[in-house]
Design a protein around this nucleic acid. Structure first.
Lengths: 256, 256
DNA sequence: TTGTTATTGTGTTAATTGTACACAATGATA
DNA sequence: TATCATTGTGTACAATTAACACAATAACAA
């Protein structure tokens, strides 16, 4: 009971994880990134099978659920201080590894607490793709980005969880500057537009988009231009948090 | 293990409820009603103290969480087939009766599963005030309506849960016809406007409101007028579900 | 019976916002 | 140096929202 619960061996975890973590409750994270004009999510590939799943974890008996989600994000990406958004809790009684032929690793107790029915709390996060160091957990062989429209069959209801996360993200997009978290500090207007188009799944008018974004008054145009492109060099912008805080007070909408 | 889990005595429930229900997880319902131009919520007054709380309950080991919430709503209001909206899950580790001086009834085990830390899933529902028969649970002396701005101090974080439910309701108001569920089948335009004003907490222009509502094409004006008022008799309207289904397909917004 | 009052029904107009386009400027390439 | 794809900026029109005026009605008081 006094070991680091994140350093347990698989056997110990299956046998006695419930002395550290709450039973029947888990957390799953949909971690979004944006790269090559594609919206991607971070997936785990399991060690001993061809299964894929979302990064997830459990809640320490005296831990806040937001903190538990933050820990999961940190361990899979190396990132701290990222805003996590809780979007839905999934409670179908079929969320049960027993009912899906998912077995504990050989040598572990097949009656483990992990094999019970679980309710999972879904969070999404927006991270800067280039800053992420994807790290598998001890049950996975790899942790990697996957384009959202090419996600394979995942365990349990994890595909549904991604769908719901995307739906929630689209709704948030109209009220909060979620897009900016996905881009590097400096970005061009076409990059920002491409991001919005990808999340919303529709093409937007280039000129009206720029007009709208600049009218929010939360972007600062830098005296630099993006070099290396094959055509006219676009200006670089940065998201101005101070201006954003000011703008929030008078109310602003990111609706496109 | 084969009794009706909802007919347990208090002693049995505290001692062995966790053989029927999931531990550490509860559901709390914010049940909204509208009466006398006031938005109200249903509260429980506890038997053995001066405490108040939201109607809540637990999840059977093999029960869907939405179903569990539906059961809670049915038991407190007598109503079925009401849309419940899951809006947030509350996971502060201080959600623990032990830490708030809330004790089991005399004669029950003070180490009961109920005295552990609980994560609660919040749902709200909109019900027609006149159709509700408020019924206390076995731990409460009364179940009654309370105006949302006059809610007393509730146990644990139940006041926060109501705040979050209201916030979620306001957001939904702009996308779904939530208001109509709170009114009787036949209602007047001023009544509908008063409901929107109460939920949003702001005054709206009478003429623009009517124009907007009628333009949605989901209301049918009846050949009747509300009698008994002190002034000009307003027309009665009803919400037309068929028209609503049609309108949904082409997309519509209730934004005010 | 009749005027007063508060409320409802139905417009019209002005301001704002959103949509659809046109054209010049730029940087790499041929 | 001409071409091409792309970026920067502006303008006209449509749609929506906001602001406002006046007639009709029902209860009440004189």
């Amino acid at each position: 009971m006094n070991k680091d619960p994140y350093s347990l061996s698989a056997e110990e975890f299956y046998a006695r994880g419930d002395s550290y973590f709450l039973p029947h409750i888990s957390i799953d994270c949909v971690i979004f990134g944006f790269h090559d004009n594609q919206l991607k999510v971070l997936l785990l590939e399991w060690k001993d099978s061809l299964r894929w799943s979302l990064p997830g974890g459990f809640i320490l008996k005296d831990e806040d659920i937001d903190q538990a989600a933050t820990t999961i994000l940190l361990k899979r990406t190396g990132l701290e201080k990222i805003h996590l958004h809780q979007f839905h809790t999934f409670g179908d009684p079929n969320r049960d590894r027993k009912k899906h032929g998912i077995n504990p690793p050989k040598g572990s107790n097949p009656k483990s607490w992990i094999m019970d029915r679980f309710i999972t709390i879904g969070y999404w996060a927006l991270v800067e793709h280039s800053k992420v160091t994807p790290s598998p957990d001890s049950f996975s062989r790899s942790c990697s980005w996957c384009e959202v429209s090419e996600v394979p069959d995942l365990i349990l209801d994890h595909n549904l969880i991604i769908d719901k996360a995307l739906e929630s993200l689209r709704l948030q997009l109209n009220d909060y500057p979620v897009g900016f978290n996905l881009l590097p500090t400096k970005f061009t207007m076409p990059e920002l537009q491409s991001l919005y188009e990808t999340i919303l799944g529709e093409k937007l008018d280039r000129r009206n988009f720029q007009k709208k974004m600049l009218s929010l008054g939360v972007l600062t145009r830098l005296n630099e231009q993006k070099q290396g492109g094959a055509h006219k060099a676009p200006f670089l912008y940065k998201f101005d948090k101070k201006k954003y805080q000011m703008a929030l007070k008078r109310g602003l909408s990111f609706g496109i």
